[in-house]
Design a protein around this nucleic acid. Structure first.
Length: 686
RNA sequence: GGCGAGGUAGCUCAGUUGGUUAGAGCGCAGGAUUCAUAACCCUGAGGCCGAGAGUUCAAAUCUCUCUCUCGCUACCA
């Protein structure tokens, strides 16, 4: 039978920050184990990843730090690539989306879809800033509102009268970029009419049937993936714009599209394809073999992702691939839930994280130890949690005590009794035969689990083998029997060595470094997954035993926990000071004390309270986003700081005439501001 | 507010199409042992399976209501 072939991708990390353990546990490590396993099974596999370097978040950050987007992505691409390398997550290629081959590939992809009518093109006349040479998004245009004459209305909405506008309705429009009057120019945006694809998506996701043929087994897809997708589809898919007015990204490859780039979620997954192209080119392969229906046959495309990416990989990208026509669709999209850290979410902004590159710098020799821990707590079916205490416990009581100790005692006994030469077994007792039979079944057990993406359970089967070994030795007591029946010990040590041998082979996908060290100690070299019984022949000379896993001291746990506490203190919890303003700017603000005289929840909105505030000069309506922090009952009667002359704005159909000013601490908790002397409503602030 | 996924032992998690006494590892208690990394091995304690109602001879499992956690989404000037 022909072996299945695979193209495996791991979600492209976004190049505006380093990787933390959550990313590793929930995408890259399981993908790497899966691929190592497939390789040992001699499947033809391409393992593809790269950094995602486009999108608005990177341009905003660049602007804030006063450097170019390229500088940011260069920095993080290097950090990420390095840490993958040191952590032995071995992609065939770790590419990047800012390279020309990616731009070409994405542009070609786009052109094909445009040509075959997969997009709907919305033509319009849009304002264009001649000085900045770009089309202006609605929010980048201000002008006079045709309805209320407010001269500060935005292109999409007048915040004074609350009416929805289009930019062309504005009287005397101005570009917020150059301040000049923009000109109207014909332009288009391209939309993906996702609503046209609901029918086949439903059939494909629920039943695994694509173009009338069985493409995958939906039972192998995770619940949360199918659930999330069906939720989207049943809610009705909507056309989604595939182009943006931005200058950082893949340029829309058509005339009249100046200043437009492809939507980052269009170009990022195509990054898998362009990375494959580059890798194929470097290795004299045909990239189409990995992606195209014709050349790839029934190659399986697998996307390892986090749960926040489900919609893009299981709905949008498949629509694009299918619309293009040449490509295969994913056979599975194993999505992982999130990993938490010491009782709290990983948070980049609060620096609540264990960064992979920092871990590697501090513990360069503890790569497989971390891999083991992360795999045992991988969030396969629900969110899970990393704690340093558990890190220590797993390593000490499982890796060191069970696995390492078993290997050590077996090898030490072999040295002691047989000078490191595998002894000749004599008669097998029924226990021996049971154990031998059990060992032989382990590879098939583990492989079934990995094929089903149950990697955590697969690893625990590996550990189970070491447990069997410890029990076997304890039951047989060779150190006692040697005194009465030395020939029996030959068989016992032989069997124990067979367990160790098998262990060294099945550990490869999970802990490649340690597996090789163990194989070195056994003087064997396994690169293939054991299909038939592995035998360590009698007479084989073993290598020198050494300690495989060192224990983790309490000190490390304390230090790491302390480090988390202190970094969080050192992190600037609060935003930087804003640009200076002059006194006139300040004097424009009309702030007063106001008393909340009534409050109720806005319907169908989680965060909004509809307040009536007595300001001393009037009673006005203010809608405030504080419902998650305060109940209506507890805010009534409070005297608080109010900004009166903020332009009114309609929120959820209610016009809000001002703003309640709140203080927010680093945990996101809110507090009202009041006058210390207990003033009532009315007093002005300044 | 809408939708999705979860809630099982102190901790991390399994529980297939409803079917004996709900499982594993860690942790804890006791015992045994000394080849080995104060390791291993044995025994044990520990669960109203988030709450309530229903269907059934039988529910962790199916249905409904409620509640908590996470995510998507709307809305947070």
């Amino acid at each position: 039978m022909e072996k299945d072939t695979f193209t495996v991708t791991a979600a492209l990390p976004y190049a505006n920050g380093p990787l933390h353990l959550g990313h590793i546990a929930g995408v890259y490590l399981p993908a790497d184990i899966f691929v190592r396993f497939l390789r040992m099974k001699e499947h033809d596999v391409a393992f593809i990843c790269g950094s995602d370097e486009h999108g608005a978040a990177i341009t905003l950050r660049a602007k804030k730090e006063g450097i170019s987007p390229q500088e940011i992505v260069d920095k993080y691409h290097d950090i990420i690539k390095n840490s993958f390398h040191q952590f032995h997550i071995d992609f065939d290629i770790f590419h990047r989306t800012s390279l020309p081959i990616h731009h070409e590939t994405s542009a070609d992809f786009f052109k094909t879809l445009e040509a075959n009518g997969s997009f709907t093109k919305e033509n319009s006349e849009q304002y264009y800033d001649e000085e900045y040479k770009q089309f202006l998004a609605d929010r980048y245009i201000t002008g006079t509102c045709p309805k209320c004459q407010n001269d500060n209305a935005y292109g999409d909405q007048c915040e004074k009268c609350g009416s929805d506008l289009s930019p062309t309705e504005l009287i005397d429009p101005k570009s917020t970029l150059s301040g000049k009057t923009p000109i109207l120019k014909a332009t288009s945006h391209w939309y993906l009419p996702m609503n046209d694809h609901e029918e086949w998506l439903r059939e494909w996701i629920q039943n695994g049937i694509l173009d009338g043929e069985k493409q995958h087994d939906p039972k192998k897809w995770r619940n949360q993936v199918i659930g999330q997708c069906m939720s989207w589809i049943n809610g009705g898919l909507k056309p989604r714009a595939m182009t943006r007015d931005l200058d950082w990204g893949v340029k829309v490859p058509l005339p009249d599209a100046e200043g437009k780039v492809l939507y980052v979620w269009l170009d990022a997954p195509i990054g898998y394809i362009s990375a494959t192209k580059q890798w194929a080119k470097d290795n004299n392969l045909d990239w189409k073999k990995f992606w195209c229906k014709k050349e790839a046959g029934n190659r399986k495309l697998i996307h390892f992702i986090g749960k926040d990416n489900i919609v893009f990989h299981a709905i949008i990208f498949p629509i694009l691939l299918k619309s293009h026509g040449d490509f295969i669709l994913p056979e599975n999209v194993p999505a992982y839930e999130f990993l938490n850290l010491e009782g709290d979410k990983f948070s980049t902004s609060r620096n609540w994280a264990v960064w992979l590159h920092e871990y590697l710098a501090a513990y360069p020799n503890k790569v497989d130890e971390l891999k083991y821990v992360l795999t045992s707590i991988a969030p396969e079916s629900k969110d899970s949690e990393f704690t340093w205490k558990e890190y220590q416990q797993r390593i000490n009581s499982e890796l060191a005590d069970v696995y390492g100790n078993f290997v050590n005692r077996t090898l030490v006994l072999s040295q002691k009794y047989y000078q490191g030469i595998v002894p000749q077994p004599l008669e097998f007792s029924s226990v021996d035969e049971d154990v031998m039979a059990t060992i032989e079944k382990v590879p098939a057990k583990i492989s079934a689990l990995i094929y089903a993406y149950k990697i955590r359970e697969a690893q625990s089967e590996m550990m189970q083998l070491a447990r069997i070994g410890n029990k076997y030795l304890a039951d047989q007591e060779p150190w006692k029997v040697i005194k009465t029946d030395p020939t029996r010990v030959q068989t016992v040590i032989y069997v124990a060595l067979q367990i160790t041998n098998m262990l060294s082979a099945v550990t490869m996908p999970f802990l490649s470094v340690k597996a090789k060290e163990l194989q070195e100690m056994l003087q064997v070299n396994y690169t293939l997954w054991p299909e038939s019984p592995l035998v360590l022949e009698a007479g084989h000379q073993l290598g020198t035993p050494k300690i495989l896993f060192e224990k983790i001291e309490d000190e490390l746990v304390m230090n790491e926990k302390a480090k988390l506490e202190t970094t969080i203190e050192q992190t600037t919890k609060y935003p930087k000071m804003k640009d200076a303003i002059n006194f006139d700017d300040f004097a424009k603000l009309d702030m007063r004390m106001g008393k909340i005289i009534s409050a109720q929840k806005v319907e169908k909105a989680d965060k909004l309270l509809h307040l009536i505030v007595d300001t001393g000069i009037d009673q006005r309506t203010i809608v405030s986003g504080i419902a998650e922090h305060f109940s209506p009952e507890e805010v009534i009667g409070k005297t608080v700081l109010v900004l009166l002359n903020l332009e009114p704005r309609k929120i959820r159909g209610v016009e809000s005439q001002g703003m309640i000013l709140m203080a927010e601490n680093e945990d996101g908790k809110l507090s009202f501001l009041s006058a210390e002397s207990g003033f009532g409503p009315g007093p002005s602030v300044g």
